[in-house]
Design a protein around this nucleic acid. Sequence first.
DNA 1: GCACTAAGTTCAAGCATTGAACGAATGAGG
DNA 2: CCTCATTCGTTCAATGCTTGAACTTAGTGC
Lengths: 383, 383
Amino acid sequence: MLDRMTTVDHLRQVRLGNLRTVLLALVDKPGSRADLAARTGLTKATLSNLAEPLLANGILIEDAATLAGMGRPSKPLRFHPDGPVAVGAEINVSHLAVETIGLDGETICRRLVPTDIRTSTAAEVLDRVAELVREITPPRPVLGVGLAVPGVVHDGVLVRAPNLPKLVGEPLADALGRRLDLDVELDNEANLAALAHLWPRHLAGEDFVHVSADVGIGAGIVLGGEVYRGASGFAGELGHVVIERNGVRCTCGSRGCVERYAGLDVILKEAGRRRLDSLAKALDAGDAKVLQAVRDAGQALGVGLATLMNLFDVPTVVLGGSYAVLHEHLSAAVQSEMDTRVLAGGERHTRLVASPLGEFAVVRGAAGLITRRAVQQPERLFA
Amino acid sequence: MLDRMTTVDHLRQVRLGNLRTVLLALVDKPGSRADLAARTGLTKATLSNLAEPLLANGILIEDAATLAGMGRPSKPLRFHPDGPVAVGAEINVSHLAVETIGLDGETICRRLVPTDIRTSTAAEVLDRVAELVREITPPRPVLGVGLAVPGVVHDGVLVRAPNLPKLVGEPLADALGRRLDLDVELDNEANLAALAHLWPRHLAGEDFVHVSADVGIGAGIVLGGEVYRGASGFAGELGHVVIERNGVRCTCGSRGCVERYAGLDVILKEAGRRRLDSLAKALDAGDAKVLQAVRDAGQALGVGLATLMNLFDVPTVVLGGSYAVLHEHLSAAVQSEMDTRVLAGGERHTRLVASPLGEFAVVRGAAGLITRRAVQQPERLFA
DNA sequence: GCACTAAGTTCAAGCATTGAACGAATGAGG
DNA sequence: CCTCATTCGTTCAATGCTTGAACTTAGTGC
């Protein structure tokens, strides 16, 4: 019991909580003080009070009065066009990507650079990322950088990344932070892809799992509006869920992992293709062998997802990354396994949807990590 | 946004929160106002203030002054011996059980009655339970009843219970509540067994999964000090995690469910025994066939648990129910599968322990559900 | 111009904790 | 037996944020 909270502190917390509520409402859409008061349940008096420092600090801007109907015209508040921004960056096996967004979540600038970084050192990669970040950063205050990597992250360090062995153990967050003189938050790409579907607009509406296969298979699990990371950041390792206990040996030491049946590399190999776009083309052309490879992967993925759903009881699955590209030919097999294997009862339903976010999902999630933190802890906006 | 909270309301919340903190400290152990102030981080002034209504309402009692060392003697506060109690009740396939506990978690009275209820109607079972509850309820205020059932629960209704088909769909909570004129909270036995390891004393220390096999295999998953139930109460269905996608057909419609390899009925059948105690005896005698049956179950269970841990990233597994009885001969196989299949990284560790709580774990959890709610929402104590 | 409507502002009231000062109850030492 | 040191418990003014009602501002409609 170390929390020493005076009443005054509590009242300040109340104020910060209300500030958060107002900012959340503004992320949803702009509105006048009176409108925001109505939407948040606060009083007009409080809203005037809360808006004042946000305006004074250049977070919000007051539009010219709108002449709408009777009564005194309202002056809508919205995020300042020169207000703070957040940067998202992604380091992946075959590409680097960056994006800047404002507090409203609108994209300001983005870049995706195909790069094979497998042979590069951490320093080289970080230099390149820092350069890209500088290129796309507008002349506005920067709240911080979200950095996505394909692997397990714990305390700002990449703990496990089978596909990026050279970066494992490196304090990536600190290293990039020093290069840019900014706060850097490191996280798993699966978690961030999931976050992108949750913030600033909740595309799924409730708890969901976002599954993608780019390198390995990662599930980002969203429970109660928060990405669930587990005790050491290892949560959601769907790729190593076992579907055949005596099945194919996996690099992780286990046998019969989902990844060995539904990983993108496996699909490509079974289909006799080298790249995703060629695979997708063959699918559209109706190539039987390729279709079968995708269906087989879907079946294995469905088994793993059924297991996940029986453990987490999450109603919705979002197919992202390569799975989103393939979803048309993948979904039927996945859904079929889920239907037969997920325990049903009452009005329980399972929903399977494809992500609409495309290849920038991960960077958007990375940037969103930062804007979300700023909104949830509004004191950061006044630093 | 429907929450309308005045500042006054917020301050009242602060008070309730502090009340909760104080009660939590008292559940840990009794203490004087000064001691509690030190342990909770609140001031002596606040503690006097908070203790006053608790004493006035017969929740706490002030012991005679203790003469300990120098200075004014302290008058320790503890839960009143005639203060409110909570009732736990368990309906299971082969037995009914009840227990009453005080706010400190001490057992007041308990009963376990072997009964085959499979042929009974819901009304008959509830009548019998109500009778048992009345028999063990002391002449003290009753906070409510926690009712444990072997199945999936949602909104006070038993939604799925393969072993108790006659009770499915019945509004058990309401029905028992009417019989006793008390608040009844219905929950899954797996969740409640897990809760018993968490409240009032946290036996595992952090996040953990409690696994038991009595009817089916249920996992109670504890995340951040709370039992995780999922969106519709279906979370933790470890029994229907798939370990062989083309394996043995399961009653649930799937194939290769853990339950079909590690369920108690399966173990008994493979071992050629009819009851758990006979099985345990054969194990102690070193019966090779029985030992093998238990090891096989342990292997299957280990695979399922490895999958669970790769998804939830929970460090500790508690073996409960029949598994606790068998753990000596079961653990090695379980641990071995977990070691080879759970993704490891950094200082990650997995711990496998046997529950020390015995056959009353579930009812204690059921009663704990009520005392816990009372402590977390102290306003309930002043009703 | 005048009534009407709605937006935004001002201000006293209200509450639980704090910290310091105070009162209470004991042991130690002469 | 009296005084000092020590610790327990109580009293009380001060604190700060939201509220709701009253008020000001700035438009529309006729």
